[in-house]
């Protein structure tokens, strides 16, 4: 399988606080990779480093053979290949649901408006929000907002979808609808990198689970390997706390 993103010796500090220390990992095409770990373990920072919302202090990010950090001029173009879904949804408050989904296509990808609308409608249908094209973000529930945010990211036809704790800000009864959409995306063969606290979900959809602690990858493997048969004490302790 082709490697889409290859991360080598990545490090990131906020002031004197070292958040990522020499992190190495890769995401292959079609793979669903889940990052787990306790708060402050660096998993969100790692995800945000992948699309350069945080600038790493050292290391390499290789996207399809190109070292992105060396070619910082093409950051904007690089980002169009990555779809990002945020914990706080971050829909554009000034735009309707439809406009949220077409603004990037028209302004960044330079698609025609007609084409953009067609693409947007297709993905809004996929997430079950096609009836809400005229709504504004403030008129939607959290789960609906997050589904629109997923559609917005998909509209750019990214190679990899990044999810930063997509259900952590949702009321419990809305978590299901978002996970259902994500499960559908995983089944459709999308490449996904997910930060989540939903262990059951991670177990079901992931090809690989990566456990992080204190800025390093402690262990990774298939869901059964990591969740049922962890090799490291830190993983065991985390899982015990999580499932206690």
């Amino acid at each position: 399988m082709e490697t889409v993103i290859d991360i080598k010796h990545l490090s990131k500090s906020f002031g004197s606080n070292e958040v990522l220390k020499d992190v190495n990992f890769e995401v292959k095409k079609g793979e669903v990779v889940t990052l787990i770990g306790s708060s402050g373990s660096g998993k969100s920072t790692l995800l945000r480093c992948v699309n350069l919302l945080e600038t790493p202090n050292g290391g390499e990010i290789i996207y399809k053979g190109n070292d992105i950090l060396k070619e910082m001029k093409n950051v904007e173009q690089y980002r169009t290949h990555l779809g990002m879904v945020f914990q706080q949804f971050n829909l554009f408050n000034n735009l309707t649901v439809l406009d949220n989904c077409i603004v990037g296509q028209v302004k960044v990808l330079k698609r025609s408006k007609a084409e953009a609308i067609k693409v947007a409608e297709e993905y809004l249908q996929l997430v079950g929000m096609e009836a809400y094209v005229n709504a504004r973000p403030r008129q939607l529930s959290g789960g609906q907002k997050q589904r629109v945010a997923i559609a917005r990211a998909l509209c750019m036809n990214p190679d990899v979808m990044l999810f930063d704790e997509p259900t952590s800000a949702l009321d419990p009864e809305m978590v299901g609808e978002v996970l259902k959409v994500m499960r559908k995306l995983a089944d459709d063969g999308n490449t996904m990198l997910i930060v989540t606290h939903e262990m059951q979900f991670a177990r079901e959809v992931s090809d690989r689970i990566v456990f992080m602690d204190k800025g390093v990858i402690v262990e990774q493997g298939t869901p059964d390997e990591v969740l049922l048969n962890p090799q490291h004490d830190r993983t065991k302790a985390f899982l015990q706390r999580t499932f206690a």
Partner: peptide, 24 residues
């Protein structure tokens, strides 16, 4: 988050300001 979402779909700073931030 509005800036980050705009950046994440590949908007430049100018585009972010024009289409997302300044209207708000």
């Amino acid at each position: 988050g509005q800036y980050e979402a705009a950046q994440a779909i590949g908007m430049s700073h100018v585009q972010t300001m024009m289409h997302v931030v300044l209207p708000q």
